[in-house]
Design a protein around this nucleic acid. Structure first.
Length: 353
DNA sequence: CAACCGACCTGTTCGC
DNA sequence: TGCGAACAGGTCGGTT
């Protein structure tokens, strides 16, 4: 999904739109999307409740409801959240509709159905616990965030805290940054970007870092995430927020810039596959010390055969096509599926095939 | 603990 | 032009 900056942008857009609104109905068209409680209990759990606040934890939208309930939404890879009038056209990718008393709907659209939604109880200690309909057996799912690491932009996340967590770990930097238990909210884009900014190779291991390296990494993580929030996130492929696209994609240094010149040294950027994820870096600016080179030959050689080296996803035409799809998604339809010669106007919910 | 893998899903683009 | 393969921002559970 969108990563921390993208979810933060969704949350900031959403808050003024829905805070204070009362939920009057809910429909979940894809039951597997509801992780707690059981999908058939979900509408009743939130019906009649007032949305009191909208926030974020890690890459999740956290919506505080009256009566101490909390609605969490993880949009994962392709989930999109919109607030629209209830008559607005929908397509087959809208899997969750939450009707508001004022006639609008909060909709979750997700092409790949990876998004997840849950309702929990806010506990006195601030954590989340299970919820069950009155009289029903309560299954205790536990706090969905209990394993998450600290929020990287929180003031309590100091350099000292970062160092302590870092030194408790071993492995390579890229997989470590992607581990939500280490620090919450970083994903594939910002892991690569932070490592480039800090001039650290993705295969570098924690044990080889000097104190100055640790500090650069700490600052790079915080700075790239903060800048991305200011720019409303990276609108790559499907990501868009309720009030429109971001522009951070125009300012990324390495992500999806394979073979293009490094913005610091001008040499061609490289891409390897690390744990199945595309990993972009500059092998000149992000040197791998001899100590970390053992056992990396296969990983680095892989690059030449990797299909990811294709430039296709990086072309201007591809970007434009994606922007058009996002705009259409915001209107709830896909023009490719409209009968020839027919406009948007006549389309009603459920009609857009 | 570290790292990889396959699932989970659908759509787009590439290469033949 | 068509068709299969590869790939996509995330996370989980299972293995090694």
């Amino acid at each position: 999904m969108p990563e921390l900056p993208e979810v933060e942008t969704i949350v900031r857009d959403l808050a003024p739109l829905i805070t204070g609104a009362r939920i009057v109905h809910a429909r979940a068209g894809w039951p597997r999307m509801i992780v707690h409680p059981a999908a058939d209990e979900f509408p009743e759990a939130i019906r009649g409740r007032v949305i009191e606040a909208v926030g974020r934890r890690a890459k999740w939208i956290v919506i505080e409801l009256s009566g101490g309930l909390v609605l969490v939404i993880g949009v994962r890879m392709t989930g999109q959240v919109f607030v629209v009038p209830s008559g607005a056209p929908a397509d087959r990718h809208v899997h969750l509709v939450i009707g508001l008393e004022d006639g609008r709907e909060l909709r979750l659209r997700d092409m790949r159905k990876f998004a997840r939604v849950g309702v929990y109880r806010r506990l006195p200690d601030g954590g989340l616990g299970g919820w069950a309909a009155p009289g029903a057996e309560e299954s205790e799912p536990g706090d969905p965030f209990r394993r998450h690491g600290p929020e990287p932009l929180d003031e309590r996340f100091t350099l000292g805290v970062f160092r302590r967590r870092l030194r408790a770990r071993r492995g390579r930097l890229k997989p470590l940054l992607l581990d939500q238990k280490f620090v919450a909210g970083i994903g594939n884009i910002y892991a690569d970007e932070a490592l480039w900014r800090a001039r650290l190779h993705p295969l570098r291991t924690v044990g080889t870092l000097a104190p100055a390296d640790e500090r650069r990494l700490y600052r790079a993580i915080r700075e790239v995430l903060a800048e991305a929030i200011e720019r409303r996130g990276s609108s790559v492929d499907d990501y868009t927020a309720p009030s429109g696209d971001g522009e951070m994609q125009e300012h990324l240094a390495v992500y999806q810039r394979t073979a293009l010149p490094c913005l610091r040294c001008g040499r061609g950027l490289r891409r390897i596959a690390l744990g199945g994820r595309g990993t972009h870096f500059c092998s000149w600016c992000q040197r791998l010390p001899a100590a970390d080179r053992a056992g990396t030959a296969a990983l680095l050689r892989e690059e030449r055969r990797s299909p990811g080296v294709r430039a296709g996803r990086d072309t201007e035409a591809t970007r434009r096509a994606a922007a058009t799809r996002r705009a259409q998604a915001r209107r709830g339809i896909r023009w490719t599926e409209l009968p020839a010669g027919e406009g948007v106007v006549g389309l009603r919910p459920g009609e857009g095939r």
